[in-house]
Design a protein around this nucleic acid. Structure first.
Lengths: 342, 342
DNA sequence: CTGAAAGCGCTTACAG
DNA sequence: CTGAAAGCGCTTACAG
């Protein structure tokens, strides 16, 4: 199949097909884009043109097609990274849901770099994207302003902004539930619970602050107060987390709330090189199937990617553009005990 | 900034800008795409037009621009999934390297579905991609044929094809090195080594067969023969791996070669629910930072994503189109002992 | 130093 | 049932 007519290295156009089929470019266009029924073109012609298109390895030129059409049906997404299950799941699910709605998904990854974020957004507007989903952006409002000027709809996902609708996890509730779980497993395994450590994230970061609020709320319920020295926010990277732990004095038995799987990597590596892992119990905000197998891990919070994206697509379909905030509940995943009580 | 002239909801064009600036569309076009120096347009005009473009929130229409230009500079990639570090790293690195070369990367994920793979390839050709990187495809030759007919360059990555240049890991060498490592750690921890289990992948899969060859080669060196019942290839998914282990009889001490991180998930989950994990040592083909923290894991093979992509971009730049095969060495990552000898 | 004009490959009213 | 024609927003030789 796909025999290119050998006379030219150029891709065939509807004019080429029309000439071969003895028909007109208009007819070929209509046949190939499915509007031929309402034009009442003969089935025989349609069949012949379709066959020739296949033989010639024809693929429509979307640049030309989209330039002429009213709508592009392109929907863009920017994500910071592909290096964890959360953003990976978001990207995959976004593509699937977009295709299911007859849209063309275009995703690009912006390395948590504000300038790259902005350039990527501009590029998607240049591609005539009709809507843009801005995920985990460091400066979502700058992008929202630019999109507003270009008449392109924006939705913030994961991190909220002030200029467009935002869909975010219920970070407070998820963190509170996880903190409760770690505290209860601590008392189960070690006796009387003591205040947990909180590691990861940044004090300027919306999600970190919400999670910290939930962390404190669960401690309050349990009549516990967390010493400020036990809240450590050195960013998300494994190395920064490990460095921040150097020289800390941990008690005989203790528990840690880890704020992101990325941070978890550094925390577990450092601890396992430094002390007896039977002394510690951990819980982590965000889900990773391998992290779930670490023996000291008592539970993880999974963000509900499907529900979040459902909200995103609903907001786009309904044409919402007010800076509303939608909170999507998280899923607490307790893990079986994999390590003996001392 | 980005004040849209309120008279219209349409995006501004170079005609709008020309009118506002009191210049011509040609001049505006040249100024905005950087060719104005060689047209010797006055710096004053250039400055004025640039300012107006910013004020109006102008972004070039790439559909129109690309339709007119000779080249698109678009480079496409299809990947099967975003759900593991290997493909995540490939996607991220591909975007970075493409941008560094002045290309526009477009990636889409095809869920290991041959039809989706083909449709995605066709879509990228419709977007005028100049080259297509086909990663981990189930039917790369079908895509290669179609691309050849359309005059689009293709490179296979990860899984080789017969119709286009392929860049793949040295699966044989990586598997042999990993097998050696597991065997040596077995004898270190448990005394005399016994033949390993091999779990994961499919017998029809090129990479699996190469890894199996390396697995056997390392056993041969050690004077060991693997019983056929110890080679289990139920696909890659965690659940299939777990199911395939049901009812197996494992000796008091044993070692496993796990063929992919995805499989590792199922293997470790099942084993840890079933037996004392001190009895087992594992190694895994492919790298994952959390899997590296599992106490029984003695080492992982990391595929050298940067080198592989360097080869891909070289092949594209040089215009290679013969079905050559490039093997890129893997990186063996031994892991520190995290579990006591019995 | 600058503009008018052609044309990239399509789609779609419009006129038969 | 079908085709000629206009035009989407650009770029780029070409002619001043």
């Amino acid at each position: 199949m796909a025999e290119n007519s050998s006379n030219s290295s150029r891709r065939p156009t509807i004019y080429d097909l029309a000439q071969i089929a003895g028909s007109s470019p208009s007819a070929v266009s209509a046949i190939l884009n499915g509007t031929w029924k309402k034009r009442r073109i003969s089935a025989a012609t349609a069949e012949r043109v379709t066959r020739i298109a296949t033989e010639q390895g024809y693929a429509v030129n979307l640049q030309a097609s989209l330039l002429r059409r009213e709508r592009s049906h392109i929907i863009g997404m920017i994500v910071p990274k592909y290096d964890n299950r959360y953003f990976g799941a978001i990207a995959e699910r976004f593509e699937t849901m977009a295709r299911a709605r007859g849209l063309f998904p275009v995703i690009t990854c912006t390395q948590r770099d504000p300038d790259l974020e902005f350039e990527a957004a501009r590029e998607m507007i240049s591609y005539q994207a009709e809507a843009l989903v801005v995920t985990g952006a460091t400066d979502p409002d700058r992008i929202a302003d630019f999109c507003a000027a270009a008449g392109v709809r924006v939705i913030n996902l994961d991190l909220p902004g002030r200029r467009a609708p935002s869909v975010v996890s219920d970070n407070f509730g998820g963190a509170r539930d996880l903190t409760r779980l770690i505290l209860s497993r601590l008392s189960q395994d070690f006796g009387a619970p003591s205040p947990l450590w909180f590691i990861g994230g940044r004090p300027q970061d919306h999600n970190t602050l919400e999670r910290l609020r939930g962390f404190h709320a669960a401690h309050d319920e349990a009549g516990l107060t967390v010493p400020p020295t036990q809240v450590i926010m050195p960013g998300y990277s494994p190395d920064k987390a490990a460095t921040a732990l150097i020289g800390r004095d941990f008690p005989a038995r203790f528990g840690i709330f880890v704020n992101s799987t990325i941070t978890m990597e550094g925390v577990v590596r450092w601890l396992s090189e430094t002390l007896d892992m039977d002394r510690v119990r951990l819980g982590c905000f965000d889900w990773d199937p391998f992290a779930a197998l670490l023996p000291q891990n008592v539970g993880m919070v999974e963000q509900d990617v499907s529900s979040m994206l459902q909200q995103v697509f609903d907001a786009i379909a309904e044409g919402r553009d007010q800076p509303t905030r939608i909170n999507v509940p998280c899923i607490l995943r307790p893990l079986p005990a994999r390590v003996g009580q001392p």
